[in-house]
Design a protein around this nucleic acid. Sequence first.
DNA 1: CCTTGACTTAGAGCCGGGTTCAGGTTATAT
DNA 2: ATATAACCTGAACCCGGCTCTAAGTCAAGG
Lengths: 133, 133
Amino acid sequence: MTIAEVSKKYNISQDTLRYYERIGLIPPVPRTKSGIRNYDEASCGWVELMKCMRKAGVQIEALIEYVDLFQQGDATLEARKNILVDQREQLISRMEEMQESLDRLNRKIENYDRDMRKAEEHLRDLEEKRQGV
Amino acid sequence: MTIAEVSKKYNISQDTLRYYERIGLIPPVPRTKSGIRNYDEASCGWVELMKCMRKAGVQIEALIEYVDLFQQGDATLEARKNILVDQREQLISRMEEMQESLDRLNRKIENYDRDMRKAEEHLRDLEEKRQGV
DNA sequence: CCTTGACTTAGAGCCGGGTTCAGGTTATAT
DNA sequence: ATATAACCTGAACCCGGCTCTAAGTCAAGG
């Protein structure tokens, strides 16, 4: 697959795809003899994985280290797992913070609803009074 | 309260507190006659709110607009509520993405556990063979 | 062959969100 | 009274994560 196709498939800009490869967020992509990127399944898999991880805010640093270890082979299994476990912890704690914020937003929105209902009733009362009801 | 106290209380740097005020993320903080910030309860409340929202990744832009509307008074109730509802949507969808990523991390970690158990068994077998068991 | 358009690289630029700095004023302790 | 610590401002700087530019190479159609 060309970079254009991959870009379309995963909705990631070509620039970003090249950037990810350059910094080692994905392993080197195979090339044609003339040097043009020719993404195979494995490369696509990496792209897809990194899209998912980045969307969730996992730091590029940790992901680069993971890819680096991966390329060193089986001796790094444990180290790789440790990175994943570590990032999972961080992800969970970010999600907990977000949940707090979400609860708070929900409460605030409820308050707004209440206040706005009250304001409306008040207007209705005034209107009725004006009409002498 | 001085900026130093507020900084300590909410664990936000003084620089960040000034920066938040400067960009309008919190309304102007009351001052002493000599111009030194003297945080009252309301200001502390804003600081605390923004700390929570920022931790959750709510964009500064939206929060600034919210504060701006707030300072314009009751006529902006509905607009403010709309901002909150909107940000809630975004927050929820980010959390959903994170959940996907979390599921994926969990599956990957399980795979590593499995692979590592297998590798270990293999080593044990080799050892037994070597000892002629 | 030549154009056109997709591809390549290295490096500069941009944006969000702070953080640091320079140069000054105010408050507090001796 | 004076040192020194805390505060002030505006502007410059930094970092992560892209995004764009320049200058060139390659592939396919007319």
